[in-house]
Design a protein around this nucleic acid. Structure first.
Length: 355
DNA sequence: CAGCCGTGGGT
DNA sequence: TACCCAAGGCT
């Protein structure tokens, strides 16, 4: 594509964005930007971290909830770890929540509450990688950074008919995304590329008929837009087995434990359980008359499928558990558990006698 | 640097 | 059902 064609495509995209930009809680509309409005860097950062590998639909309510609880970076920096983890429950990739707090405390404590404006400064902060650093710099501060996420990779791969499979094609796609990035309104450009990828240039069924870039798109011309970008197939997930133990005291308190601060579901609350593998050993947190729950919990993680057998026990006040702590019934919030543990509770609760 | 790290929705 | 996929980062 010639330079003038690239420039024309970029302009066409911005025109489309002016008319079709989605209204999102963390976004400042193009017209409001022109009127002098600027996004709140705290909101941009919070939304971008939440949006990492997560859909807009899932992020929306969480973003609003976080903002109401912690309206600025100082408020978030002062929050208790357990409160932030509880509010993040259900969003997944819990290292994001741990790094979110670390980052908030650095910005609030060491940077006077001001986020770095430059990509390099942002990159040093916990939980901010190449994508997020560029996105914050571009969207919050309108710096001409090249923002490349999965949407941009797909749009560019199609626009330039890149046949190289991912992740090998990443440098090539980044260079092409850079050619498209304009000096004016780079923040809107970045969001336009991502909107286009999310709503029109979709993974399996691109709506080329209504795409503003249909004319210059080389994959469309070749008729293989839906097949790009090419990717190598992933290996099937192994199945792991395990046990989870739900103990309820006579006063209704439930035995929960804080998981280790790293690794799977790190830092989150959960039910005590066995190791997860081919042949887990039963390791209840104390001796009791553990009852089998007839159904098992099935849950899919990024790199394995899990099947958990559930055991429940009703015990007296005096029981002494080797792991975890009893949480008062009034303080127990299933919504503060990661989804896997919420599934376990749902099954366990149905097989426990009423209090 | 390739593997680890969640979850819900779409096809 | 069994995949695929999403505004990735960390180690």
């Amino acid at each position: 594509m010639r330079d003038e064609d690239v420039s024309a495509a970029s302009g066409t995209l911005l025109d489309w964005y002016d008319r079709h930009a989605r209204v999102l809680p963390w976004r400042v509309a193009p017209a409001d930007l022109r009127a002098g409005g600027r996004p709140d860097p705290y909101r941009v950062w919070l939304s971008e971290v939440m949006l990492q590998q997560t859909t807009v639909a899932a992020v929306g309510p969480k973003f609003e909830r976080f903002l109401s609880l912690w309206p600025d970076v100082h408020a978030l920096a002062g929050a208790a770890d357990a409160d932030v983890m509880a509010e993040w429950a259900g969003l997944g990739y819990y290292a994001r929540a741990r790094n979110l707090l670390k980052c908030a405390r650095v910005v609030s404590g060491d940077l006077g509450g001001e986020f770095p404006r430059e990509r390099a400064g942002l990159l040093k902060l916990p939980g901010i990688g190449p994508y997020t650093a560029a996105a914050i710099s571009a969207i919050a501060f309108d710096h001409p950074e090249v923002v490349v996420d999965g949407n941009v990779e797909r749009v560019v791969a199609r626009l330039f008919a890149v046949e190289t499979p991912l992740p090998q094609a990443k440098p090539e796609l980044t260079e092409m995304a850079g050619m498209l990035t304009p000096a004016q309104r780079p923040g809107d450009h970045a969001q336009a590329m991502m909107d286009l990828g999310a709503t029109i240039c979709s993974p399996t069924k691109p709506a080329c008929g209504i795409c503003p870039l249909v004319t210059p798109c080389r994959a469309r011309a070749a008729g293989n837009a839906a097949e790009l970008p090419r990717k190598t197939r992933k290996a099937p997930k192994p199945v792991r087995l395990g046990y989870a133990y739900v103990a309820r005291r006579s006063d209704g308190a439930l035995l929960l434990e804080r998981r280790p601060p790293r690794g799977l579901l790190g830092g989150m609350l959960g039910w005590p359980g066995s190791d997860w593998g081919d042949s887990p050993t039963e390791t209840p947190p104390f001796a009791a008359d553990w009852q089998e729950v007839p159904r098992e919990v099935r849950h899919t993680f990024t790199h394995f499928d899990l099947r958990l057998a559930i055991r429940v026990a009703c015990v007296s006040h005096e029981v002494d558990a080797s792991r975890g702590d009893f949480v008062d019934n009034a303080d127990f919030e299933p919504t503060s558990l990661p989804t896997l543990m919420r599934k376990v509770w749902k099954l366990a609760e149905s097989s426990l006698p009423p209090l």
